[in-house]
Write a protein that binds this DNA or RNA. Structure first.
Lengths: 124, 124
DNA sequence: GACGCTCTACTACAGTTGTAGTATGCGTCA
DNA sequence: TGACGCATACTACAACTGTAGTAGAGCGTC
């Protein structure tokens, strides 16, 4: 479910990350979960969640006291796919991307092997 | 060279890609090189290049007739690094990212092996 | 030297995004 | 049951982005 093609901004994506992690949360909880030096104001987070709701990326689940709970309405995977695709377009494919990762030390040879092994296993 | 920390928008990055590819180009040449169905107007490209110039991402090289030539003033690598880092932050590291690539069929096991081999070679 | 074409410089503008304030409502505790 | 406090709904707004028009200058051609 969840018809995709929803474009998210950086901050919106960050909020979605929190929701994917927590499963369900209030505005307050999302704000608390945002781990930054310049933490946004409560109402800022509220606005973002509201926009996410309008975009259909988030939905209300229930109410506790007078606080609403929200949960993701789109999958993490679909959003990642979009982000990754965009990046791949720019850098010219996944090969160059991974090469860049290895080259810049962000991914070790051991990591590569581990991924390989896992992939082989899940494939069969 | 080229003090980094320059944030580029999507379109700006696209223009930079053209410049990295061509090495040097006029506004007209950049516009022609943009390969899209909804190609932007000449003046639109002009504006983007102007903004890139203000940001220090691009510099004028010479004049031919009354047309200016521009060249990149920052490296492709530094921009990629920024983009990749942002994505990594979001998806939670390079391991998950590569796993996602493999899983979604964007990267084959053969690709992985090739990268591994190349990395080993360049390392020694 | 005048004309026309192309290029640059400047201006415009609406939509998006990050950021947050204000007003008002609802629950809970005394 | 009234007040306090947190939550929501609504409003605001400046900066950034994509998009492009207009005015005026320079170059090549006749």
């Amino acid at each position: 479910m969840a018809s995709e093609r929803i474009a998210l901004t950086k901050f919106e994506t960050e909020v979605m990350s929190v929701l994917w992690r927590l499963g369900e949360a209030t505005v307050r909880e999302v704000q608390d979960a945002i781990d930054r030096n310049d933490r946004p104001a409560y109402t800022t987070v509220q606005t973002i969640i509201q926009r996410l709701e309008q975009k259909g990326a988030v939905r209300r689940t229930r109410k506790e006291g007078n606080a609403l709970f929200f949960e993701p309405a789109i999958t993490r995977k679909s959003v990642y796919r979009r982000l990754v695709d965009e990046l791949l377009d720019l850098v010219g494919g996944s090969q160059p991307l991974v090469a860049h990762l290895v080259e810049s030390g962000k991914l070790s040879l051991d990591d590569l092997k581990a991924i390989e092994k896992a992939a082989k296993k899940s494939r069969k």
